[in-house]
Deep mutational scan, measured.
Amino acid sequence: MPGGGPEMDDYMETLKDEEDALWENVECNRHMLSRYINPAKLTPYLRQCKVIDEQDEDEVLNAPMLPSKINRAGRLLDILHTKGQRGYVVFLESLEFYYPELYKLVTGKEPTRRFSTIVVEEGHEGLTHFLMNEVIKLQQQMKAKDLQRCELLARLRQLEDEKKQMTLTRVELLTFQERYYKMKEERDSYNDELVKVKDDNYNLAMRYAQLSEEKNMAVMRSRDLQLEIDQLKHRLNKMEEECKLERNQSLKLKNDIENRPKKEQVLELERENEMLKTKNQELQSIIQAGKRSLPDSDKAILDILEHDRKEALEDRQELVNRIYNLQEEARQAEELRDKYLEEKEDLELKCSTLGKDCEMYKHRMNTVMLQLEEVERERDQAFHSRDEAQTQYSQCLIEKDKYRKQIRELEEKNDEMRIEMVRREACIVNLESKLRRLSKDSNNLDQSLPRNLPVTIISQDFGDASPRTNGQEADDSSTSEESPEDSKYFLPYHPPQRRMNLKGIQLQRAKS
């Protein structure tokens, strides 16, 4: 015994090295194993092979420090690593049964499904019991997946119906949107047309105001020219009257000059006056001389005659003075006559000038009245044309509004008919989907599995289990394997941990 101590140590070291070499393959693929292994699927088989106990299973599945599946799978690998070579062998058998691809990844061999460990530990009855539990578990999982698949199909059909409904609603909204954009385009076109009409109206108003201003300026210029013409006519008439007055005065002077006595007659009258003065002096001298030589009687007679002569001279002087006064009065009367005649001529000139001015103003008033009548006639014609244009424009607008209203009513009726057609199509689609759903539900009910399987069917299934373990590994792997896509769409199922009653199965096998 003492001599065998070193050999035992060498043997233990060799086993430990082999164990480390075995687990080295697992550690190399630890990331892939932790990512894809579900500990809840492996722990029943590991407990059946007595590699882990209930406490280890509870620690792996329910520990609060292991929230994710990767953490739980890593903890399970750590626990199996502590179990040595047996933990490695049982772990590979569980991978061979549940995850053939991972088994091939770790060992590089094809899975054979021999279950040597569980046969050694529990015997064939334990293997049968384990396989029966796994089959029931798989059936329950398949039923749950079928239910989930039916629910998802129903949800899918519902979503398809909602999608069709949303599509129809979208078509309806597109119809309304198209109608909205069309009405918006019509409104924009009408606004552009309105702005264009306003611009045209403004341009016409500006043109009309400009023409009116030009016409008023032309009328004012015409009036100024007419006033200048009238003033020139007035000056012409005044000059004609002055010329006529000057002509009359010149004719009067000419007549006075023609009626003036001649120079010879004046000289002859002056000679006669001198001769008479000479004779008068001679007679006076004779009379003076006679007075001195005459007697007293003759002197008395001469005195009487002288007195008579003096009286006659006085009378004559009075007559001469009277004649002079009369001549002066006649001259003054002639001057007054000439003055009055001049005033008369001036008044006649003024009267004729005023008459011509009156005629001029009368003509001017007639011209202004004619212009006013023409302006009123043009204004009435413009008003009439404007009223006709406004009436025609309003009539066109009324007809346009009428046609637009008819078009809008027809478009609304068309839209309502399209919407009604879309709604009826939606109703038809809904009815078809309901009919299809009812038909599929009836087919699913016919094809669904019963909840409680008979014992004979279970025994028959387990009677055929042994050949399947040898020759149909691919079928078992397809039913027991969970793909990543299934984990996305289906909830994980945790079967209840219970042991099955095998009395009925044993009785059935005894009868057979």
Rank of each mutant, 00 (worst) to 15 (best):
G4C: 13
G5N: 14
G5W: 12
G5M: 12
G5K: 13
P6Q: 13
P6H: 12
E7K: 10
E7F: 11
E7M: 11
M8V: 13
M8G: 13
M8I: 14
M8T: 13
M8Y: 10
D9N: 11
D9E: 14
D9I: 10
D9T: 15
D10L: 10
Y11Q: 13
Y11C: 12
M12P: 09
M12E: 10
M12T: 11
E13I: 13
T14L: 09
T14V: 12
T14P: 12
L15C: 11
K16D: 10
K16W: 12
K16I: 12
K16F: 12
D17M: 09
D17I: 11
D17W: 11
D17P: 10
E18K: 12
E19V: 14
D20T: 12
D20V: 12
A21L: 10
A21E: 09
E24M: 09
N25L: 06
N25K: 14
N25S: 14
N25V: 09
V26K: 06
V26L: 07
V26S: 07
V26A: 10
C28S: 09
N29A: 03
N29H: 11
N29V: 07
R30A: 00
H31P: 01
H31R: 05
H31S: 08
M32G: 02
M32Y: 10
L33V: 13
L33I: 14
L33S: 00
S34D: 01
S34C: 14
R35Q: 05
R35Y: 05
Y36F: 09
Y36H: 12
Y36R: 08
Y36A: 10
Y36T: 14
I37Q: 01
I37L: 09
I37P: 01
N38E: 00
N38S: 08
N38H: 09
N38L: 04
P39D: 00
P39K: 01
P39T: 05
P39L: 02
A40K: 03
A40I: 03
A40R: 03
K41M: 05
K41N: 02
K41E: 09
K41Q: 02
L42N: 02
L42P: 04
T43Y: 00
T43M: 05
T43D: 01
T43A: 04
P44Y: 00
P44M: 01
P44E: 06
P44L: 01
Y45C: 04
Y45N: 01
Y45Q: 03
L46Y: 10
L46S: 01
L46W: 00
R47G: 02
R47W: 01
R47Q: 01
Q48G: 06
Q48W: 02
Q48P: 02
C49N: 15
C49L: 07
C49M: 14
C49I: 04
K50P: 03
K50W: 04
K50V: 06
K50F: 11
V51E: 04
V51I: 13
V51Y: 01
V51S: 02
D53H: 05
E54D: 06
Q55I: 08
Q55L: 06
D56H: 02
D56R: 02
D56C: 04
D58G: 04
D58S: 03
E59I: 01
V60L: 01
L61F: 06
L61Q: 06
N62E: 08
A63I: 01
P64I: 04
P64G: 03
P64H: 09
P64E: 00
M65E: 00
M65S: 05
L66Y: 15
P67W: 15
S68V: 00
S68C: 11
S68W: 02
K69M: 04
K69H: 00
K69L: 03
K69I: 04
K69F: 00
N71G: 02
N71E: 02
N71W: 00
R72E: 00
R72D: 00
A73S: 09
G74S: 06
L76C: 03
L76V: 03
L76H: 02
L76T: 01
D78L: 03
D78K: 03
D78T: 03
I79G: 02
I79H: 01
L80G: 03
L80T: 02
L80A: 03
T82N: 06
K83P: 02
K83A: 08
G84A: 05
G84E: 06
G84C: 04
G84V: 03
Q85Y: 09
Q85G: 11
Q85K: 12
R86E: 14
R86F: 06
G87S: 05
G87C: 03
G87E: 02
G87I: 00
G87Y: 07
Y88F: 14
Y88N: 07
V90G: 15
V90T: 09
V90W: 06
F91N: 05
F91C: 00
F91V: 05
L92P: 06
E93K: 11
E93S: 04
S94Y: 02
S94I: 00
S94D: 01
S94C: 13
S94N: 01
L95V: 07
E96C: 07
E96P: 03
E96N: 04
E96D: 05
F97P: 06
Y98G: 10
Y98S: 05
E101G: 04
L102K: 00
Y103T: 06
K104S: 03
K104D: 06
L105A: 11
V106G: 02
V106A: 06
T107D: 02
K109W: 06
E110P: 07
E110Y: 11
E110R: 10
P111K: 05
T112R: 14
T112W: 02
R113N: 12
R113P: 06
R114T: 14
R114P: 14
F115V: 15
F115I: 15
F115N: 14
S116T: 08
S116M: 07
S116W: 04
T117R: 13
I118L: 07
I118M: 05
V120G: 07
E121Q: 07
E122G: 09
G123A: 15
H124L: 10
H124P: 11
H124T: 14
H124V: 12
G126R: 15
G126N: 15
G126E: 15
G126Y: 13
L127I: 15
T128W: 11
H129Y: 13
H129P: 13
F130P: 06
F130L: 13
L131G: 06
L131R: 06
L131W: 09
M132K: 04
N133M: 05
N133G: 08
N133F: 02
E134S: 15
V135T: 07
I136H: 11
K137I: 14
K137T: 14
K137V: 09
L138Y: 05
L138C: 10
L138S: 09
Q139P: 06
Q139T: 11
Q139H: 13
Q139I: 14
Q139Y: 08
Q140D: 09
Q141K: 11
M142R: 09
K143W: 08
K143Q: 08
K143C: 14
A144P: 10
A144T: 12
A144R: 09
K145T: 11
K145A: 10
K145D: 09
K145R: 14
D146S: 11
D146T: 11
